[in-house]
């Protein structure tokens, strides 16, 4: 069984290994990418800090608590971006006609697209998220009981799944709107921006969009409310953080449906 698994994953591992080698061979360029990625993470953290430092408490969270939200959500997003972020560039493949190459290989399309690249530079951004998360845990004096650790692990794994699903969902939609790929920025990058905010400040339509339809609130805010035992708010009871795995399943269901419909719609690049 193990032998067949190794044999089956060999082509994917070969591609990924080549992508890793490629990124590491241009060292100066890779270092610059790492630095850029680090700066993006830091500036996003600074945006949160500027708001909270001025007024102390927003949406029921103080700066220390929002650090936890930012950390959890940003680690999840960065890891998802590292693994499947390139799916968001599907419109480019379709426009250049290079997507048809995937059809020539006897492997599932989505799996090929996912394993076609890996963006190691996102590691720098994940580092910012991890730093924020650890600082948040220390500042809030979170006792690392088995329940707390379990909730954090659940939140991180589900968070990566939700964020990855957004990229795949975007890819599916881009089969239809090749010229309007910016449309998917609304839930991919809008979702990322939303995930680092306290969801308690949103109006109900925004909650419907980013808690239930594109469930990015489950990658940061909701698990933090549950973890810290904060009171629940309108539409968002305190126990909702435990439902992060459900959100992950829903998001992936949506993503796979979008991918399937998209692939069915695709007529080929005429090559």
């Amino acid at each position: 069984m193990r032998g067949t698994l190794a044999a089956r994953t060999a082509p994917y591992r070969a591609v990924l290994a080549s992508r890793v080698r490629a990124q590491r061979s241009y060292r100066a360029s890779f270092r610059m990418d790492l630095l850029g990625s680090l700066l993006v993470g830091l500036v996003e953290l600074a945006e949160v800090w500027v708001l909270f430092h001025g007024v102390g408490r927003i949406g029921g969270l103080d700066l220390g608590q929002v650090l936890l939200v930012f950390g959890l959500a940003d680690v999840a997003y960065s890891v998802a971006d590292l693994l499947v972020g390139h799916c968001d560039g599907l419109a480019g493949f379709v426009r250049r006609g290079t997507f048809d190459v995937f059809y020539l290989r006897p492997q599932p399309l989505l799996l090929q697209l996912v394993t076609s690249d890996i963006s190691l530079r996102r590691l720098a951004r994940a580092a910012v998220g991890i730093a924020a998360l650890v600082t948040g845990l220390v500042v809030n004096d979170v006792a690392l009981t088995p329940v707390a650790v379990g909730l954090l692990a659940l939140a991180l794994v589900s968070g990566v799944a939700v964020s990855s699903a957004m990229f795949v969902l975007a890819a599916g939609v881009q089969f239809f709107v090749v010229d309007g790929a910016e449309l998917t920025n609304a839930f991919v990058y809008g979702g990322r921006y939303a995930s680092t905010q306290p969801a308690s400040v949103w109006s109900r339509p925004v909650k419907a969009a980013f808690v239930f339809l594109f469930p990015v609130a489950f990658t940061g805010y909701l698990p933090v409310v549950t973890l810290l035992g904060l009171p629940g708010t309108d539409w968002l009871p305190a126990w909702l953080g435990w439902c992060a795995p459900l959100a992950a399943v829903w998001a992936w269901g949506l993503a796979l449906l979008s991918w399937r419909v998209g692939v069915r719609h695709y007529q080929g690049g005429g090559g």
Binding site: V55, I58, E182, N185, Y189, Y193, Q197, S200, S203, F210
Partner: peptide, 28 residues
């Protein structure tokens, strides 16, 4: 279509900014 896509993204970000910035004003 690109312009329409951009508009949808703009409006989404706008509504998110409304949420967080109005809450900031509220807190102040």
């Amino acid at each position: 279509l690109a312009a329409l896509g951009g508009l949808v993204a703009n409006a989404t970000f706008g509504l998110l900014k409304v949420g967080i910035l109005f809450a900031t004003l509220d807190a102040a």
